[in-house]
Design a protein around this nucleic acid. Structure first.
Length: 506
RNA sequence: GGCGCAUUCGUCUAGCGGCCUAGGACGCCGCCCUCUCAAGGCGGAGACCACGGGUUCGAAUCCCGUAUGCGCUACCA
């Protein structure tokens, strides 16, 4: 019980410099949504901005809710976003272990210390009694709080409970009067009446500490200097202040970040209205775009700048410019921003990053399975050169499937443009085919000159003539410019498709 | 119910007493460009700064109420 890990005992007190140390401390109860990653991002940005350290700690004290694979998913997400971790699971560090379930003894030590100093007490109440108590409070419209039944037990009564082998927890003894001031760097001083505070459990009957004690002990032991967390923690902050005081510890700087809400104006929730990082990845969002976007959810640089590379974010980020009002997550702007990032990609990079999206199985969002993999990177690059400015996400590239398909599927009427009939369309395509066949080079400007000429002699508007050719060659009404497209498609494919179109009309 | 936090265009936000008849961005609408779709350029609609009182020569900005929204109210985080 009193065997505390050595490394915990002799904490490396003297830092080289007193540099900010920030942590991200999620509980592995499912995937992290952008709200969680936003908290992580701000901490990470501040650490990088100041040359401080960024620590990842897994708050897995609620073993009943721990989800298999959650830590793994989290780590993958952090990597995807490019947030590197200085200390934490896998990378380790001088303040480990970084799983709370492995720090059990520490919490127990401090819980007992609190009992000895009179700041906490053992509570033998059964869940049934607590339940009944709450029900009664509810019917009598009283605030549901622990009634402090065990707080004033005599020594004899305690001994009797022990002798009876009653299971017990440790509760923190909140001062019976006065008030607690929580100083938050963003919100200023927040004052709470102690009579509104509850004697919360700080050590569970299974020997593990709930969040309130565990995070606090770890933040202290890990020499955390800044705590960034969601504003939903504000109500329990006075309890934390009380525990800090009882232990005689300095309180790290507190930053309660505004929540990110869903369209329903409710807090983003893993199971209701929030996408995971892997959803973004699967849909073809670039991590740098998502980072840029979520950085702007609750933080701003000035009144106009909003595109930031990662390096620029680190340079520009300031905790002082973090807002305090909750904001709604609106994916439309993210989509726009992602498009901007895609347009800024070099062609080679775009190709390299898009290929996996095209090549994944059709069911997973890729090109039709009838198209053979792997794709030719050279050809794909030519296609993407034409599609780049049309993409909002990388997975959008599949809309250029006609560049890859063997057989085009569309109905003949699609070929017929406004103001002309089937016969003239048929004739125009035949003429175009003949004209194109005589061309020495299969090159966009050569084709355009020839077809412009032909269109005029046929008495067709560009829209009519080119429109028919567009559908013939692609089976689609929305494509890149006709001749560059035909150039990429190549002579054989283009000519064959025009022939097929003619056949459809004949 | 109790306690707490918040409140500027539909959305993200700038604003920290006079520069605001409130600026930017997304989205929306229109025009231009144009072989379609985009991209781009230009322009427009869109916020009585939640409401009501103060303080002040002067308030989106400070103070107090009210309303609304959200959060917390577990041996969850």
């Amino acid at each position: 019980m009193t065997q505390i890990n050595d490394r915990v005992q002799e904490q490396p007190i003297e830092q080289k410099k007193s540099v900010p140390r920030l942590r991200f401390a999620p509980s592995p109860t499912g995937f992290q949504h952008i709200g969680g990653f936003r908290t992580a991002l701000f901490s990470w940005l501040y650490a990088r901005h100041t040359g401080g350290q960024f620590i990842l700690r897994v708050e897995d004290t609620d073993t009943t809710r721990t989800v298999e694979g959650a830590v793994d998913d989290l780590l993958k997400g952090m990597t995807w976003f490019g947030m590197d971790i200085d200390e934490g699971p896998i990378v380790g560090g001088p303040y480990g272990p970084y799983y709370q379930t492995q720090r059990k003894a520490l919490y127990q030590q401090y819980a007992y210390q609190l009992i000895e100093s009179g700041h906490a007490y053992p509570c033998y109440c059964t869940p049934e009694r607590l339940d009944a108590m709450r029900k009664m409070q509810e019917t009598r419209k009283l605030p549901p709080r622990y009634d402090r039944h065990c707080r004033f037990l005599t020594k004899e009564q305690r001994a009797a409970n022990e002798a009876a082998g009653a299971t017990w927890v440790v509760r923190f003894a909140i001062p019976l009067d006065g008030e607690t001031i929580v100083h938050d760097e963003l919100h200023g001083d927040m004052v709470f009446k102690n009579t509104n505070l509850d004697d919360m459990v700080v050590l569970k009957s299974n020997g593990l500490a709930p969040y309130h004690l565990a995070h606090l002990v770890d933040d202290h032991e890990m020499a955390i200097t800044h705590i960034l967390r969601g504003e939903d923690w504000i109500p329990s902050a006075p309890l934390h202040v009380q525990i800090y005081n009882a232990l005689g510890w300095n309180i790290p700087l507190l930053y309660h970040l505004p929540n990110i809400l869903g369209k329903d104006k409710k807090k983003l929730s893993k199971r209701r209205n929030a996408p995971s990082w892997s959803d973004f990845q699967r849909e073809g969002f670039l991590p740098e775009a998502v980072i840029n976007f979520i950085a702007l959810l609750g933080w701003s640089y000035d009144d106009k700048t909003e595109m930031f590379t990662q390096a620029e974010l680190i340079e520009a980020f300031s905790l002082k410019r973090v807002g305090i009002a909750s904001g709604i997550y609106d994916p439309e702007k993210l989509t726009w921003m992602n498009g901007v990032y895609i347009r800024n990609l070099s062609l080679d990079e775009l190709t390299q990053r898009t290929l996996p999206y095209l090549e994944r199985p059709e069911a997973a969002g890729g090109l039709p399975d009838s198209i053979q993999r792997p794709l030719d990177p050279i050809y794909t690059k030519q296609v993407l050169a034409l599609e780049q400015e049309r993409l909002k996400t990388l997975s959008d590239a599949t809309k250029a499937h006609f560049f890859f398909e063997h057989e085009l599927i569309y109905d003949a009427p699609m070929l017929i443009q406004k103001g002309i009939d089937a016969t003239r369309t048929h004739d125009a395509l035949v003429q175009a085919h003949n004209g194109l066949a005589t061309l020495e080079q299969w090159e966009r400007s050569v084709m355009e000159t020839a077809m412009d000429e032909l269109g005029k002699t046929l008495g067709l508007k560009r829209g009519q003539f080119f429109g028919a050719l567009r559908v013939a060659v692609s089976g689609s009404n929305a494509t890149p410019p006709l001749f560059p497209m035909m150039e990429v498609l190549g002579r054989d494919v283009s000519m064959k498709r025009i022939e097929q179109a003619i056949a459809k009309l004949g």
